[in-house]
Every structure is written in C-alpha cells, then in structure tokens.
C-alpha cells in the first residue's frame, strides 16, 4: 500500500515537471489564437528560447540573464510571425512552419559555432540553473501522514518557473475575462471588423497577443534548458510545442481547461518514462509508442467532434483586411 503511494507521488511529481513547459506554451498559444493568429510555431520559439537561455546562462553564470535571453529570442521569432501574418497578411500556418525550421536549424548552427560540441551547450551548473525552491513550513508539516509527504515531495521542491506557470493560469483567465484588454483580445479573434468599427486598432491588439505569446514561449523554452534539464541539446523540445497545440485544442481555447489537458498530457509523458510501473500495478504491458501517440490520438478524437465540439476562434487564421 505504502509503495503505491510513493510510486504515485513520484509519477505525479514528474507529471508536474513535464506539464510545465506544455502549460506555458499552451497559454502562449491561447493568447495568440484567441486574438485570431494561429501559431504552429510554438515549437520553434521554445527551441530558440531553450538554446539562447542555456547559452547565456552558461556564459554569464546567471540563470536570470539566461531567462531574459530566452524570452528575447522567442520574441524575435514572435515579431517575425507578426510581421508575416499581421503586417504582410501572409499565411499564418506557413509562417509557423518556417519559424519551426528556422529555430531547428539556427540553434544547432549557432551552438556548433559557439561551443563546438555537436550542437549542444555545455552542462549548466550552480547559478546557471534554476534550483528547486523549498516552500515554507516543510519541517513542521513533514510529520503529518499522507499530507506531509504530499506537501514535501509533490507540492514543494520545484523550480520557481513551475509555480510561475501555475500562477499564469488564473492570471490568464483574469486577463481574458475580467479586463478590457482581454475582452478586446477575444473580440479581435472572433469579429475583428467589429473591433475596428469601435475604433480600436486590430493590428496593435494582435501584435500584443503575439508578443505575450512570445514571452510565455520564452519562459517555456528557458524552463526546458535551465530547469528541467541542465543545458541545451539539439531538438530538445521534442514535439512539445505540438503537444501544447494539441492541449490547446483539447482545452477548447480556455485557460483552466488548458491546465487540465496539459496535466493529462504531462501525466502521459511521465508514464511513458516509467513503463515498468504500469506493468507492476496493472499486470499488462503498455507499449511506450502508444503512450507517446496518445496525446495526438486524443486530440484527433476531440477534433473529430466525438467528445464535444472544438470550435476555434472564428477569425482565426484570417488576415484582417480593412477595405473589402
């Protein structure tokens, strides 16, 4: 009995760690897509942020400078996406694809040129990484059965970015549904012509959405390279940007549901790391490949409309042209 409890704790613990980059990227996509800018470049932005955060953190020894560099790198790609899809009214999907390839290529190219280690950064140590944070009252609470270990193992002891990501969920909800900016942001994704008629700049709103998306993707990328792992390796985002996209659809573009779907997909990733555990408790072997593919399969099922209908923002993907 005690074993199960401990095993569950480890799995949930790694669920939380693995969900964090998904959640940040998912909320990033949420801002962008709610404003009517489809973004399949989440993956590329995370990857670029991962590399530049690790590189700067290594060079400066400060993880906070690394975080800023990661955000900056992600923002550059965001602005590029904005330029292509807002200013030049290009195809947002094609722009996203280009950004993903640009990041995949450039990170390795620059990494090789700077560090000459086959497209990776040296391992980060000490202040160049985000350390885990111990929450207060660990000592007195540790003695309490069940709650004590849960608090000590699961809730406490993560990097600060994990808590930041979790805090972003209510914050996103508040911004979207309780502020004037949020109302306008949602409106510009549903009916930009109405926003324009009201005398509010569609272009400015959409640029803001894209910028917020860039910042969040930057944090997600920095988390991967400086907290989840100690350094950048080639293609380290490993499809997380696409899983975040899937989670966004799964959540039907709503912040709280984004949290739940990212936790679910993070849980699947955590299970894929521990296939032995499923076998021990359920007595059958689950193929790792099935666990890998499950987020995508679930998303297709959701998209097919078998479990409620996922309707994207109405003006999503359409460049706004003032004069028709």
């Amino acid at each position: 009995m005690f074993d199960i409890f401990n095993d569950l704790l480890t799995v949930f613990d790694s669920t939380l760690r693995l969900s964090t980059p998904l959640l940040l990227a998912c909320l990033a996509g949420l801002f962008s897509e709610r404003a009517g800018i489809f973004d399949i470049g989440l993956e590329g932005k995370m990857l670029a942020a991962a590399f530049f955060s690790a590189a700067v953190a290594y060079a400066s020894g400060s993880v906070w400078l690394g975080l800023l560099a990661g955000i900056a790198a992600s923002l550059v790609l965001s602005i590029l996406h904005g330029l292509a899809s807002i200013t030049f009214r290009g195809n947002q999907l094609i722009s996203g694809v280009a950004i993903n390839f640009l990041a995949a290529g450039m990170t390795v190219l620059v990494a090789q040129s700077w560090f000459k280690q086959g497209g990776r950064t040296p391992s980060l140590i000490g202040g160049a990484r985000f350390e885990s944070v111990d929450l207060p009252f660990l000592e007195p609470l540790a003695g309490i059965p069940v709650f004590g270990p849960i608090y000590g193992e699961l809730v406490s002891g993560h990097s600060i970015l994990v808590y930041l990501a979790l805090a972003c969920v209510p914050l996103t909800w508040w911004v979207l549904y309780r502020t004037r900016f949020g109302l306008r942001l949602r409106a510009v994704g549903e009916a930009p012509e109405a926003v324009d008629t009201a005398g509010i700049s569609v272009v400015a709103l959409r640029y803001w959405a894209v910028i917020i998306c860039g910042v969040l993707c930057g944090i997600a990328g920095a988390y991967m390279a400086t907290a989840l792992q100690a350094g950048f390796v080639k293609d380290m985002s490993a499809g997380r940007g696409y899983i975040a996209l899937a989670a966004l659809i799964f959540a039907k573009w709503r912040p709280w549901y984004a949290l739940y779907s990212c936790l679910l997909f993070g849980f699947l990733q955590a299970l894929a790391l521990r296939p032995d555990m499923i076998e021990r408790y359920f007595g059958f072997k689950v193929q790792v490949q099935l666990l890998d593919a499950l987020p995508y399969i679930l998303t297709v099922i959701i998209l097919a409309g078998f479990v409620g209908k996922a309707i994207p923002p109405r003006a999503g993907g359409e460049p706004y042209v003032k004069e028709r």
Binding site: L80, L83, A84, S85, F88, R89, G90, N91, Q92, I94, S95, V97, A98, I99, N100, F101, L102, A104, G105, M106, V108, L109, Q112, S113, K116, G119
Partner: peptide, 28 residues
Amino acid sequence: TSIPRELIVVIQALVILFTGALDNMVRM
C-alpha cells in the same frame, strides 16, 4: 567543413518564409 548539416534546414526555412509567408512583402 565545420558547417553542420542544419544549414540546409535554415535555408529551407528562409525559402518557406520568403516564398510563402512573406510573399506580400515582395509582391506589394
């Protein structure tokens, strides 16, 4: 040389960017 293969990925990205997404930048 010490130029990694990923250079091609970058060129590919730039081609997609300019001929696809930024088409209007040249066209307008």
